[in-house]
Simulated scan of single mutants.
Amino acid sequence: MQTNTSNSSANRERTVKVGSGWAMLPLTLLVLLGGVLAIVLGARGGGLVFFLGGISTLVFGFVLCGGFFTLQPNEAAVLILFGAYKGTARESGFCWTNPFNKKVKISLRARNLNGDKLKVNDKRGNPIEIAAVVVWRVEDTAQAVFDVDSYDHYVAVQSESAVRHLASGYAYDDGEHDEVTLRGGSDAVSQALQLELQERLGKAGVRVEEARLTHLAYAPEIAQAMLRRQQAEAIIAARQKIVQGAVGMVEMALNELAAKEVVDLDADRKAAMVSNLLVVLCGESEVHPVVNAGTLYS
């Protein structure tokens, strides 16, 4: 029978209150001064008891000094006593805790991870270059310290893996009907990237605040071919608009001529007129008309 240890091994942060460093500072100074005074008295003939007591008091004062530490805003300290997690201090200022507690400071500020350009294949197998920026911060200090070896390195590696996985799930461009693409669906792609990153980095106590693509392009070996394809698609789309407009203008001209009885055209003359108008309207170069000085049917 197998047991799932992933959830049981996950640590959870416990916030603890620590003492004020300003309150302990006078007591610590008194202990240190008392120890020095006792050593001086013992050395001047006060006896061995004063001397040894002064040394012990002085050592105790130095031990108390080990409990002082400071925390800046958006900074926390994970307290560890002989390998056991005792809690996390989050109150900023001059603090004091058990001198034997190991204090691991962690920044809670938002950080930027500007990923490198990665060369991957999109959904259709086209090689592309992609990069992303991730805004993240440590949310659970216990998970960040105890559940991963180095949360900074963990964020970098998992972010690269998430970007590669994202790129393989979407086409770069020219998607099917209502298909989200990397180029056309930036908002949807960014949201998907943020959700995947949060799922991966949540194991390290990290909260992803934003994730967006900063670079997206075809790989150099196919960039020229894809550019020519995009240019061809643009030309075809423009031609379609021109033809649609030209057909509408020809239809309007024939209807106006017939409605106002300007001229009565048979089928052959209508076909010739349509041909001439389409050449004029759809041609790329300037058209030089030929003036007919005879009759309509000459």
Rank of each mutant, 00 (worst) to 15 (best):
C95K: 14
F82S: 05
P99Y: 04
F69L: 07
T97W: 05
P99S: 07
Q72R: 08
A76M: 05
N98E: 09
G53N: 03
F82H: 06
R111L: 13
V63H: 03
V78G: 08
N121P: 01
K119T: 15
K123E: 11
G93K: 04
L108P: 07
K105I: 14
W96K: 03
F100H: 09
F69P: 08
K86G: 11
F60N: 02
G87I: 04
P73H: 10
G83S: 00
F68K: 00
N121Y: 10
G53Y: 00
Q72A: 15
P73A: 07
F94E: 14
Y85E: 00
L108R: 12
V104Q: 01
F60E: 04
N126D: 14
N121C: 06
G53I: 04
F51L: 06
V120G: 04
K103D: 10
G93T: 02
P127F: 13
K117F: 02
K103R: 14
F68W: 02
L58E: 01
Y85N: 01
L118E: 05
W96P: 07
D122Q: 11
N126E: 14
Y85V: 02
T97D: 15
V59Q: 10
G93C: 03
G61E: 00
R109A: 15
N114L: 13
K119C: 14
P99A: 07
I80V: 07
G93A: 06
P73R: 03
